[in-house]
């Protein structure tokens, strides 16, 4: 009996050592300790052992069983380890570059636009949009730009042929022409006609001028424009907003100043100059950055607001110009060439 046990253990031990997979292990385990296994069969022979030998034999069998279990456990652990090792594969070289692309980037014009919108949202402005194809009413008439104003001439503004109709753009006056908007100020009119004062909006967007492209001109470019309408709005409020915007955008050493100017839709009107010690182009002299003023009473009358009650200011500027200043870009065409070496600098 003892000899049989020893032989059985030795055989199991040799077999277990050769096992490679979990399935083989389960089969071997069944052959050994399963219901019809060799060990089980041997155990069943215990009944035939004389009664006085049973305690000694029982001890022997239990020892053998324990030994076998240890071997089974060790084998399972070994197979488990081998499986994991197989899953892992060889060790990696952490220095190899990832073949995956990324990161994606926002265009610098988007970055500047979003930054301006973020700053203005803090001051209570909401962002609005308007169509890029406009009618003369929204682009000129409602903004106090008379019919014979030079800005409306064909040499400065893109118009559409008379037979073209725009489905989702209604003419205010039947005979007016469709055009590509020359400024985002048209959105002021749309916002005032649509809403009720007080109004505080910022409208970024693409605008068009019939200009020959060069380092500082582009057939389309982008503007961002603010309009605030409320009671008792003053020149000083306008200056305070501009000081806040540019300090928030460019840093606390940024200064603005007003120069008198003329726009049909504001009175008084100003051009805004900028200076900032840390920016190379504006640390020595003032650089013009945009135009602004108090909303002209005539504009309010046109949209049905009583100019005796309502006052307001408007401010507009070119996004390209601002981005060029902020990032030190010297050619506007870089924005529209989209060289990835340029774009990736704004990740």
């Amino acid at each position: 009996m003892q000899a049989t046990l020893t032989a059985l253990l030795a055989k199991a031990s040799a077999e277990l050592a050769r096992l490679k997979t979990r399935a083989d292990f389960e089969a071997a385990k069944a052959r050994c300790v399963g219901p019809n296994g060799e060990f089980t069969t041997l155990m069943k022979q215990m009944g035939a052992v004389p009664k006085e030998q049973r305690p000694a034999m029982g001890k022997l069998v239990n020892e053998a069983k324990a030994q076998l279990q240890v071997q089974l456990d060790a084998t399972l652990a070994r197979i488990g380890d081998a499986e994991i090792a197989g899953q892992l594969g060889p060790a990696i070289d952490p220095t190899l570059p990832s073949p995956d692309s990324g990161p994606g980037t926002c265009h610098p014009l988007t970055r500047v636009r979003e930054e301006m919108c973020r700053i203005l949202r803090k001051a209570g402005f909401t962002v609005v949009e308007g169509p890029e194809v406009e009618t003369e009413y929204y682009c000129f008439d409602a903004l106090n730009t008379p019919a014979d104003h030079p800005a409306r001439e064909e040499q400065d503004t893109f118009y559409f042929p008379e037979n073209v109709r725009f489905g989702n753009l209604t003419k205010k006056v039947p005979q007016e022409k469709y055009l590509l908007r020359t400024h985002t100020s048209s959105v002021q009119i749309r916002s005032m006609l649509k809403g009720k004062p007080p109004i505080r909006i910022v409208s970024p967007g693409r605008v068009y001028r019939r200009d020959t492209s060069d380092a500082t001109h582009s057939a389309n470019f982008h503007q961002i424009e603010c309009l605030y309408v409320d009671r008792n709005v003053t020149v000083r409020d306008l200056k305070a907003l501009l000081d806040y915007i540019f300090a928030a955008l460019l840093g606390p050493d940024t200064k603005t100043r007003f120069r008198p100017h003329y726009f049909g839709y504001t009175e008084p009107s100003f051009e805004v100059d900028l200076s900032a010690q840390h920016l190379p182009k504006v640390n020595k002299e003032w650089i013009e950055i945009g135009g602004c003023g108090l909303v002209d009473p005539g504009v309010f009358e046109g949209v049905g607001y009583d100019p005796k009650v309502w006052t307001g200011y408007a401010f507009g500027m070119g996004l390209e110009r601002l981005a060029m200043l902020m990032y030190g870009i010297d050619d506007i065409r870089y924005f529209y060439q989209n060289d990835l070496r340029f774009l990736k600098q704004f990740a």
Binding site: P103, G104, T105, H107, F158, R206, F335, N338
Partner: peptide, 14 residues
């Protein structure tokens, strides 16, 4: 799209 590793470009309308 930026999160999906795209680069934003800006081209002319015309």
């Amino acid at each position: 799209l930026v999160g999906q590793h795209f680069h934003e470009v800006v081209n002319y309308t015309l």
